[in-house]
Amino acid sequence: MPKPLDRMDRKILKALLGNARLSNSQLAEQVGLSSSPCWQRVRRLEQDGYITGYYAALDQRLLGAKETVIIEVTLDRHDDDILESFGEAMARLPEVLEVYLTTGEYDYLMKVAVDGTEEYERFLRERLYKVRGIRHTRSSFALRCLKQAHSIAPIDE
């Protein structure tokens, strides 16, 4: 069982959420610790699963995928075989950024990055609609992103 977060752990997580490239000495200075205890806390937060990884946030527009499309997907069946094969297929599609199994009218909510409507049509015809088990989809193009976060910030107590 992970150790509960204290105030210093929260400060460390917030600092890393703001800039995961901080060196240990920069992080220690920012949160008010010396380097060794800061390093030990970060390692514990990683081992306990609070920190699951570090990554670079890339600008998809500069990479040639200027449109974000939200796709709702309904499957024709819900047996284990179809669910597993759908998940594996989505993991192989580079345009697919996120996929959530949901409750409600649709089974999945997907976030997809494409370079305009022609590429989106090609994605549908040549990739998504070839995945077995899909009964119905509904798509919406995002006009503008108002907020983007990759995790919640720890709540101060």
Rank of each mutant, 00 (worst) to 15 (best):
D59I: 11
A57C: 10
F123I: 02
V112E: 14
L27T: 03
Y50I: 03
D81G: 00
L109Q: 14
R135L: 14
L83W: 02
E121C: 05
S36H: 11
A142W: 07
Q40L: 04
R144C: 06
Q47E: 15
S25R: 08
F86K: 02
S34K: 10
R77K: 12
R125N: 10
T137F: 03
T68Q: 12
D81P: 00
G49T: 03
A113H: 11
L83D: 14
F123T: 04
R144L: 12
Q60K: 14
D115E: 09
G53Q: 15
L128M: 11
A28W: 00
A91P: 10
R44F: 01
K66S: 10
V96K: 08
A28H: 03
E46M: 11
Y106S: 14
V42G: 11
K66N: 10
E95V: 07
Y120Q: 06
Y106D: 15
Q26R: 07
D80M: 01
R138E: 06
V73L: 09
V69H: 02
K111W: 04
N24Y: 11
K66V: 02
R125K: 07
I51V: 15
D59V: 09
L22E: 05
Y120E: 12
R21D: 11
G87V: 00
L128A: 13
D81K: 00
I82M: 02
T52Q: 15
I134S: 06
T74H: 03
E46C: 03
M110Y: 08
A65Y: 15
L62K: 05
L83Q: 09
Y54D: 07
R21E: 11
R61C: 11
S23N: 12
L143Y: 09
E95T: 12
W39K: 15
Y100I: 08
D81Y: 00
L62F: 10
E84F: 02
E67L: 04
Q60D: 10
T117G: 03
